[in-house]
Amino acid sequence: MSLDRRDFLKIGGAMACGTALTTAVPIVSAMTEANETRADAGNQWAMVVDINKCPPDCTACYDACRKENNVPHFAEPALDIHWIRKVTFKQKGVPGAEERNMPVMCFHCEHPPCAHVCPVAATFKRKDGIVLVDKHRCIGCRYCMSACPYKARSFVSKHVEHEPGQNPDVPLRMHGVVEKCELCVHRVDKGLEPACVEACKAQGGGMAFGNLNDPQSEVSKIVRSGKATRLRADLGTNPRVFYVGI
């Protein structure tokens, strides 16, 4: 059989389409079946923390996060993983300045420097504004850790083992990749609030979570009032975590 160029291309094209049809199409169609949720650009998730309501010795949000997300505790402080941490601050250069506390986590910036520097787009911003790390893709180059202004990222430098008492809904922290707060995306997709917010509310604290695009949500009301500030707003990263009372 002799083939001219045109026939060859036709056959090749048909074969390529055939391969695509037999493999890709059934899988893709499976994804659009019933009871699907999908990150929606109409929701822009945000958080407001009223630090006036933070008692000095409260650790509810940190504990809840470690438990919910299976964040292990490494003995060496320089290696330990922190998805949310308690930062104590006081006015600089003033004698006897009052010490206050605030929780600091990933701020899910509108312009995330970490996602900009990630060479493989393992860190990305979801349509609803949540900045995530795809742990299956991260190569562990740690450029994002250099680029994050808020030190929100931790590198998992040890192997983490399965143990009883861990949360089966969330995978363990993966050795050799960089991880950070996910705004409890697995809960948000189910319509729940992040674990830290839930724990804080149970204590009568000042954390609130909601949709910035929804004018009736608590977060957008507070943000509209102008009382909420963002950390390092000068950098233009536009964090999605707001603070009241700084």
């Binding site: 308690k86 104590t88 601050f89 006081k90």
Partner: peptide
């Protein structure tokens, strides 16, 4: 984190 505040933490 702030231009004019001292901060400390376990991290």
């Amino acid at each position: 984190l702030f231009a004019d505040k001292e901060i400390t933490s376990v991290f």
